[in-house]
Design a protein around this nucleic acid. Structure first.
Lengths: 365, 365
DNA sequence: ATTGTTTAATTGTTTATACAATTATATGAT
DNA sequence: ATCATATAATTGTATAAACAATTAAACAAT
């Protein structure tokens, strides 16, 4: 990185010097609290007038990279120590109203509060466009980090969003859902294992014909489907394709209501249902009730998530309890460690889910 | 305000000029988008060198007061138009996970997004201490406004929080719950009217012995209790104090579970229950189920709120549907109008609730 | 030991001058 | 009418040369 000023470049000479200095700082050649050469020294080295070197330095002072002290010289500011940084973390979830988003936001929010940080909550509706909009806002607000639940858009698109943060050195943690081929912190639960256990539970209760309704847009539900298949296979039950309802669409109550209705119309084909997540399970309850089908007497069902209201009703769902609050907490902890300067490679945290047995499954045979 | 530079003052001449210019701008002598004199003109007027006038101008450019345009001159920036202000609004709710908070946050968040603003969500757990903590954060983050659901603390305390914002000219909207004696924007629903209608509905269904379980900490539930009493009175049913369970405590599942249990133990004393809000109603469902009491066959019940999952289950609740999303939207609209400079007196918006009849009430006689 | 004084290094302020770059506007060419 | 070109106003860049102000550090006086 030689310091050569091109007198004939169209780029102003003060700007060439300014850029060179900035590079030295950003690349750590000149470290925080280091003294940079005096105006006079720089003038001699570069062959510029002192006023010109001064202009370069002054600009960097205005930009917050340097402090000047009379008689002592000019020094690189330690931006970490002077914590000039923002203490806000952005959270991109599908919809703050639904699913596990509120619980995740609360876990993240509490952990943020522990570190005197606040959270900006953004609902993406699983749409790339909306996520992109919120990404602009978060960058404008100079957030110190982002917890990102990927959208339903293809990986490339989510990648794009991710890059907009990482390019600006804004740490990102993916929560719950993964994106392929990225080197970024990630907090999730073991959906394969969870689904495996749930399916095994159904099998051990004597169920052999188990229908499953999941979305295949997200890594989480894809893994649940895999866990389901593995369990069937391990217990010698052949996979019945007509019982696998894997929809390449995000969850929308209206659409899934129809799927549920269609599935329940052929309720004689299976004895148990694996719902992709609790909200789908609720749809089954609701439609079953309308159709005069009793859960669990006619059909058994398991869900996934253990949302807060799972147990508030007279009908209670056996489900895989995900530690969503903890997921929010852990995600925020990772962000905080990055904000504090941690530069280790990408970390992955897999939290344990646990089967909560209630009364939506009846033994068979 | 004469422009005189004192050559012998210890204050640098560029700084004298800079200060003079700033005064002219702040006092409106030079208005936004006005052109200020050129460097040369200022140099002539003041007797300074062009480089010196330049330094004064350049500083004001760096401070964001002026823009320079080659060939055209230097202009005063219109800071309102160039919205240099923060575009974040804080939302203080009891708990982002529960009750209507998620829906409120979403309504406010969407309206904020329409105005290119973002929301910082803070969970107070109805505690003054936590609300105070978050208030500090919000002030630090220079939020442009705050939507505040008052805590369970006494009015004086909520007042204190409110003042910390208003003293700094941060507009506040109270959402849902009121505080006495404050001149501040307020968005709510007519809880008295809503409760009156619900009670009337029960009465017209033939119920005469109607138990009520509410918290009396919040204006909302107090008004519901008043509406209940008024309806009884209007329909000539004497108020039976032993059926009024008014608790001066915030809602906590554990505590209220006990109240519900106690109330259901004397289920022969009443034929219907007015639950202070939907979550309380769910407790009644849950406990009734455990105790082998059937809703609505043994006891009828109504709730209040119409939370999203009210209708997801086989058991469906008749309740007063509050337009929570709209409440969030309207609150944010008020904030936005303040941010845009509206200085009218305090405004109050009362949204209409509507009775949603499902199947938790059976007619009597 | 504390206080005052000097010294030298460095940034801060100011002037004077010159030429470069940009661009709205006017002018001229097609 | 449209496009190209020149003009002039203004800010932008650069140099050279002083002197002022601040202050750490060395030194001196009490």
């Amino acid at each position: 990185m030689p310091l050569i000023i091109d007198k004939h470049s169209p780029i102003p000479q003060y700007f060439q010097l300014q850029t060179w200095l900035l590079e030295q700082i950003e690349q750590g050649v000149i470290k925080p609290n280091d003294k940079i050469p005096t105006e006079e020294e720089l003038a001699q080295k570069t062959g510029l007038a002192r006023a010109t070197t001064r202009q370069a330095i002054q600009n960097l002072v205005n930009m917050g990279y340097l402090v000047r002290k009379r008689r002592l010289g000019t020094f690189v500011i330690d931006r970490d120590a002077n914590n000039n940084r923002q203490t806000i973390v952005g959270i991109l979830v599908p919809d703050i109203r639904s699913g596990y988003a509120p619980e995740l936001a609360r876990g993240a929010g509490d952990e943020a509060a522990n570190n005197k940080h606040s959270i900006i909550v953004c609902s993406t509706d699983d749409s790339f466009i909306k996520a992109d909009f919120h990404t602009n806002r978060l960058i404008e607000h100079c957030v110190g980090g982002v917890i990102f639940v990927p959208t339903a858009a293809p990986d490339e698109k989510n990648h794009l969003l991710l890059e907009r943060f990482t390019r600006r050195n804004i740490p990102v943690v993916l929560a719950d859902r993964a994106i392929s081929d990225v080197e970024v912190d990630f907090v999730t639960t073991d959906n394969f294992q969870g689904a495996y256990e749930l399916t095994k539970y159904l099998i051990l209760k004597g169920h052999k014909k188990i229908a499953i309704l999941v979305s295949t847009l997200f890594t989480t539900e894809k893994q649940r489907l895999e866990g389901y298949k593995q369990a069937l296979s391990d217990y010698g039950i052949p996979l019945e394709p007509s019982l696998v309802f894997a929809k390449p669409e995000p969850y929308l109550e209206k659409a899934y209501l129809e799927y549920v209705r269609a599935i329940l119309t052929h309720k004689d084909k299976f004895t148990a249902i694996f719902a992709g997540h609790d909200r789908i399970a609720y749809l089954f309850y609701s439609v079953a009730n309308q159709m005069g089908i009793s859960i669990p007497d006619d059909v058994s069902i398991v869900g996934y998530d253990d949302l807060a209201y799972t147990n508030s009703y007279s009908v209670t769902l056996t489900t895989m309890s995900q530690p969503i609050y903890a997921m929010g907490e852990e995600s925020m902890k990772l962000i905080m460690s990055r904000i504090r300067g941690n530069v280790s490679g990408s970390r992955k945290i897999v939290l344990k889910s646990s089967l909560v047995e209630r009364s939506s499954v009846l033994p068979r045979n």
